[in-house]
Computed example of a mutant assay.
Amino acid sequence: MARRGGIWTAANVVTCVRVALIPLFMVLATAARADAGTSSDPVLAAASFALYVALALTDKLDGHLARSRGEVTDFGKFLDPIADKLLVFSALLLLLEQQLVGVWAVFAILAREFLVSALRMLAGVQGEVIAAGNLGKAKTAVTLVSISCYYATLLSASLLLGTPTTWLLGAADALMIVAVALTVASGVQYFWNARHVVFRA
């Protein structure tokens, strides 16, 4: 497809805005947290939840814009996955601090991203491109939904004066288990499909 407008295409602008707003999400989410013996701020909790959901949805928007407008660029290919990882890990680290997600879940997701990124770099050196598979796309979608459920749980707790919605927290936990399973499975799939890259003499 032809490229128009240099790197500042509509898709890349959306991606850059996503990256720029991640610190704002972190500030809002941190400010919304409750001190000991108090409930969290419902306005800040609602703002952080809404902003996270909006940023997560732009993951699909920038890709759609790039393909539909014929504006796929190397800059976009570089920045989009970084934006996705920054959003996921900023949210996970905050949830980890609040003891809503386990350290092993965060470690599994982080380790997989490092390993797959290293694999892609190695493949790039050898002139190959490793495209995202269906398991990887499913992993990303389930992880984003799970994190959204956690922040919806925090919002419900702030509205109910400190009492979280049990079913919502259970749904978030269940989705995170699925996300970790998909994380491991997709990582194994990437390395199996690219084993010739790893073991090439």
Score class of each variant (00 low, 15 high):
M1G: 12
M1P: 06
I7N: 15
I7S: 11
W8M: 07
N12R: 04
N12T: 01
N12K: 01
V13M: 07
C16P: 01
A20K: 10
L21R: 13
I22L: 06
M26P: 03
A29S: 14
A29F: 13
A31Q: 12
A31P: 04
A32V: 00
A34L: 06
A34H: 10
A34P: 14
D35K: 15
G37R: 03
T38S: 11
D41N: 15
V43A: 14
L44F: 02
A46Y: 08
S48R: 11
S48D: 01
L51P: 03
Y52C: 02
Y52F: 15
Y52I: 01
V53R: 10
L55E: 04
D62I: 05
G63H: 10
S68N: 12
S68F: 04
E71H: 01
V72T: 13
V72K: 09
D74A: 13
D74G: 02
K77S: 01
K77H: 00
L79Q: 04
D80P: 05
P81A: 04
D84T: 08
D84Y: 02
L86A: 15
L86M: 15
A91C: 13
A91H: 12
L92Y: 11
L94W: 14
L94S: 12
Q99K: 15
L100Y: 11
V101Y: 13
G102D: 12
G102E: 08
G102A: 11
W104C: 01
A105S: 15
V106F: 13
V106D: 05
A108Y: 09
L110C: 07
L110M: 15
F114M: 11
L122M: 14
V125Q: 11
Q126I: 00
E128A: 13
A131I: 06
A131F: 07
L135E: 05
L135V: 07
L135C: 09
G136T: 00
K137P: 07
K137Q: 03
A138T: 08
K139M: 03
V145A: 14
I147H: 14
C149W: 09
C149A: 14
A152L: 15
L155S: 07
S156V: 07
A157N: 04
L160M: 05
L161T: 13
L161M: 12
W167D: 06
L168W: 01
A172L: 09
I177W: 12
V180E: 04
A181C: 10
G187E: 04
Q189F: 02
Y190I: 08
F191W: 14
F191Q: 07
A194V: 02
H196M: 02
F199S: 12
